[in-house]
Design a protein around this nucleic acid. Structure first.
Length: 206
DNA sequence: ACATTAAGTGATT
DNA sequence: AATCACTTAATGT
């Protein structure tokens, strides 16, 4: 744990974190938090990666951003502090390790530890920056560009050039339809940017 | 061998 | 770029 958080947080705080929080194992593609759920814990990703997406009542989805090692989710913090239910859905992208911190510690540590305040503010900032990046992508990029960005982002995050998703899953993340994604992927394959296999897409470079 | 699920295709809006 | 209707291919039992 020290390797992920130690650089940012002071010793006394880390000691407290160890005392009150618990570690949770999640498997790949597990839904950690659904829209409407409420949170008793602030999760911090120790290992692995989490995907944060928006979802409406019809089940339409849109990927917002990812959370990696050492990061926490701004939206979750928000819904913890205000005791409202979640506006977002969190899904693990691979087997991951989460550090679950009881909500009530949030306020106490905000007053007590400067490094905790900075950690939380920093987290808000990076989440907001990432969110703007995806807004840009949706507003200004053509779908084929967005798709390629999606693929390279996944590859970077999972540290693998192979992406084990069906066209359907990709379509859901990008809020498009399966046929459209299939066709765009075919075009990318013809251009030599990717190779397509069943349940799998391979890029030759990031 | 058969059923199920993923991916490809042509036509239409 | 989305949707429909249909085909083909891959995979599990």
């Amino acid at each position: 744990m020290h390797d992920v958080l130690g650089y940012a947080l002071e010793e006394a705080l880390i000691d407290e974190i160890v005392k009150v929080s618990q570690v949770k194992d999640v498997l790949a593609d597990e839904i950690i938090l659904n829209v409407g759920d409420s949170m008793q814990y602030i999760p911090i990703v120790l290992e692995g990666s989490i995907k944060i997406s928006r979802e409406n009542d019809e089940g339409d989805e849109l990927l917002l951003y990812y959370i990696e090692g050492g990061d926490t989710c701004a939206m979750t913090l928000q819904c913890c502090v205000r005791h409202t239910s979640s506006e977002i859905k969190a899904t693990s992208m691979e087997d991951s390790l989460l550090l679950m911190i009881p909500v009530e510690m949030m306020e106490i540590w905000m007053n007590k530890y400067r490094t905790w305040r900075e950690f939380i503010l920093q987290s808000y900032h990076t989440r907001l920056t990432e969110l703007m990046e995806t807004v840009d992508a949706i507003a200004f990029m053509r779908l084929d560009e967005r798709l390629l960005k999606y693929l390279t982002d996944q590859a970077k995050l999972l540290g693998s050039l192979e992406i084990n998703h069906t066209h359907q899953q990709i379509a859901e993340d990008l809020h498009s339809s399966r046929v459209v994604i299939s066709r765009l992927l075919k075009q990318l394959e013809i251009k030599g940017k990717i190779k397509i296999q069943r349940n799998k897409i391979i890029l030759d470079t990031i």
